[in-house]
Nucleic acid binder design. Structure first.
Length: 483
RNA sequence: GACCCGUUCGUCUAGCUUGGCCUAGGACACCUGCCUUUCACGUAGGCAACAGGGGUUCAAAUCCCCUACGGGUCGCCA
């Protein structure tokens, strides 16, 4: 049997990390097993689905690097891949179900059903359909339809128990009287999720259905339909949900949750993917930092745990830092570019002319970045002296030795455009011997002179990547504060 | 309420199938030391968990039962 999996989002907005994790597990499983990945757009809810949202899904998937073998964009052998384009197919199988007696027309009104449900709730019995239309013959129903009535189509729960085979949870036995006969097509002819998903999965030859375990309770209904239609039931794998720190389903109020937001906040796609992979899955040797290819190689659906995972922003931050440290200079530059442009002095022209130096600056702050967004903060010291001096820096400034150190430094710095590392070192040595200041008071004085701060990139980088002219000006300014 | 699912450090998890190697391992966070003439990075340590109760067994995180708690579903949403 060839392995085929699908990711089937509804186009109702940006992809949420929970959905992305589902997409990822499908993808990793398929790639690991040499299977195919299918992206299907589930837009039977015409009220909430939009084409714009569909575009957002493509965009998000593209950013994280998840490519699907078949999708509305790359039609394969099982087109179309958008449910709204498959309506006639659903119609055909609904008719078959009707003919075979696995489904029947239901003329009960929504109001009627709502009242019934309410009544059931009051009497604290399960809100099952009362089977009012269950025995209406197909011929009679057709007559009523000819007379202008608009019925829904209801599926008959035709057996008492159904066993769902799930890789993660094992076999689960559901009594069908816990849900009863259920609607598969609305009176306006729009088919319902639990039904279309079966037709699509069967026709698209999906071998494994990997999805969130919030769908577990729907699965017996779907398994019933697979049987009624004579299709082979796929193997299920219901993966645990991702929850917030309050253990409720992850949602907007927990902070950043959409893929787009993570991108905008300076997270690397490979870091997000890596972090998400570690939610409910772990490698057999405890290693945690992986490239996507390594994840594919190591992924096993059998190592997915059963319990919900709390999304931990701290660990994602750490993971992002790990992946930033893995970036080469070119990629780092590319990722940082949009953020560098937000720094006032860095015009497109300036960036164009200073690529080499900028890359060096980026390299010098790389290890301190948590998100790519942080470059703005970290790198700005190279281009502009901060307006304010930190209190720790002020203490250095108060030192008696600081003034002579700085004055000497400007004097020795020379007229070259930039200081070389050797030149810088010899200057420091010279100051040390002439005024006898060494260690912290010496190095910190220069650091504070340049950046008004005791923190930041290495002094080597600061002194060699800032033009000599600017260093002079900066130190002169700081000397002014001293007076 | 009914039906399902779940429960190991604060968090992510390993271990559970095939009981003993578990004095329960790793990671994030936190704390401490080291490194770095700064912060960060890195590095070496530390803190910290088998939901509870009954069984079975020479031996239980691991097998069985019960309880508690958490979650999901019960739509003419997906």
């Amino acid at each position: 049997m060839s392995i085929r999996v699908r990711f089937a989002p509804s186009p109702t907005g940006h992809i949420h990390v929970g959905n992305l994790r589902t997409a990822l597990f499908n993808y990793l499983f398929a790639k690991n097993q040499n299977g195919q990945t299918i992206l299907r757009i589930e837009d039977t809810d015409t009220v909430r689905s939009t084409l714009e949202s569909e575009e957002l899904i493509y965009k998000d998937l593209d950013w994280v690097g998840l490519e699907f073998d078949e999708s509305p964009l790359f039609e394969g052998d099982y087109s179309p891949y958008r449910q709204s384009d498959r309506l006639d197919i659903y119609k055909k199988y609904a008719d078959k179900l009707l003919e075979d007696g696995f489904a029947y027309y239901c003329f009960c009104s929504k109001e009627e059903l709502d009242a019934e449900r309410e009544k059931a709730a009051k009497e604290s019995r399960p809100p099952l359909y009362n089977l009012k239309c269950a025995n209406t013959s197909l011929d009679e129903a057709k007559k009523r339809i000819a007379n202008g009535e608009k019925p829904a189509i209801r599926f008959r729960a035709f057996k008492e128990n159904i066993i769902v085979k799930d890789i993660i949870h094992g076999d689960i036995d559901f009594p069908t009287n816990s849900f009863g006969d259920f609607i598969i097509v609305r009176p306006d002819d729009m088919p319902i999720y639990n039904y279309v998903v079966v037709v699509d999965d069967a026709l698209m030859k999906i071998s494994h259905v990997i999805r969130g375990d919030d769908h577990l309770s729907n699965t017996p209904k779907q398994a019933l339909i697979f049987e009624a239609l004579g299709f082979e039931t796929p193997i299920f794998a219901h993966i645990p949900m991702i929850v917030g720190d309050d253990h409720a389903k992850l949602s907007k109020r927990h902070g950043t949750t959409s893929v787009e937001q993570f991108r905008d906040n300076g997270y690397l796609p490979e870091a997000l993917i890596n972090y998400l992979a570690l939610l409910s899955w772990s490698s057999d040797d405890g290693k945690e930092v992986f490239s996507i290819d390594e994840l594919i190689e190591r992924f096993s659906i059998k190592r997915v745990s059963k319990s919900a995972a709390v999304f931990d922003f701290d660990k994602l931050n750490w993971m992002n830092g790990q992946h930033i440290r893995l970036l080469d200079s070119d990629r780092l530059f590319k990722e940082c570019l949009p953020y560098m442009k937000s720094i006032e002095l860095l015009t497109d022209e300036f960036i164009e002319q200073n690529i080499y130096r900028l890359k060096e600056c980026l390299l010098s702050v790389k290890d301190s970045l948590v998100t790519i967004k942080d470059v703005t903060q970290n790198i700005s010291v190279y281009f502009k002296q901060p307006d304010d001096i930190t209190s720790a820096a002020k203490e250095i400034l108060e030192l008696e030795s600081t003034k002579p150190v700085l004055e000497n430094f400007i004097q020795l710095i020379g007229d070259d455009e930039y200081l070389t590392i050797d030149r810088y070192k010899s200057i420091m040595k010279e100051i040390q011997t002439t005024i006898g200041v060494k260690g912290k008071p010496l190095y910190m004085a220069v650091r504070v002179g340049i950046s008004k701060s005791t923190e930041g990139p290495e002094l080597d980088s600061l002194t060699t990547l800032i033009p000599v002219k600017c260093i002079k000006k900066r130190i002169e300014k700081v000397l002014l504060i001293k007076k």
